[in-house]
Design a protein around this nucleic acid. Sequence first.
DNA 1: CTTTCATATGAACAAGTGTTCATGTGTTAT
DNA 2: ATAACACATGAACACTTGTTCATATGAAAG
Lengths: 119, 119
Amino acid sequence: MDEINELMCEEPGTHDDVVGAVRESLPDDDTLYELADLFKMFGDSTRMKIMFVLMESEMCVCDIAELLGISQSAISHQLRILKQSKLISSRREGKNIICFLADDHVRSIIDQGLSHVLE
Amino acid sequence: MDEINELMCEEPGTHDDVVGAVRESLPDDDTLYELADLFKMFGDSTRMKIMFVLMESEMCVCDIAELLGISQSAISHQLRILKQSKLISSRREGKNIICFLADDHVRSIIDQGLSHVLE
DNA sequence: CTTTCATATGAACAAGTGTTCATGTGTTAT
DNA sequence: ATAACACATGAACACTTGTTCATATGAAAG
């Protein structure tokens, strides 16, 4: 703590007030890590592609793999991660596992991202 | 391409139609990579913290470092990355560099993420 | 019950990422 | 000028991540 305080710049006036107020407004650490972990899901192009596909239609694993030209193993590994984050779910239909978006926030988040990228 | 087609499952009926339609609806590769790169910015807890702080108030570099208890060097490296993604900007004021959010989408994206995490 | 198809998973490896440490640059004050 | 402060940057390192390869599981068809 002493070492950190030494880093503080010597701004006059309401400096400490602002820093203190902002500190109290921060979410707790657990929430911050959860949030970062959530956005990590959108930070890989393979997962991004999978979610784009599922935004259009639910689909079995091998169709996703074929459509995207990515190996079945790679898709399966990524699906596992996406399921852990509760972004997609699946059900069995005979031999196939049908995947679909589990959360409408996926669309909103991607749309907000697109707005930034396309401007 | 032959190898990929071998992976295709043998679903009957409208299978190929759906796959074809979805394929055409996908954004081009450049957009997809830009989008993934954008979300990568939100996928690290240090950058997440920086953006939360700047959502409350613009602030100089060393105050951000002090407030978050993270070394000035680490903050500076992350600020560089955030600036490259056009998520934050800065101006000089005497000895200090004042950082601030450069894009209102930051707030919307984080809010959508929070909705998912907090539900 | 054996085979085949659809999917999951573990190990290994290459590539990417974030931090620290040391040092460089630019600004202000003495 | 020179010292002190605010910030930036490069190299090194540990750590994480995504893919491939080989193999395992699980359902359905013959």
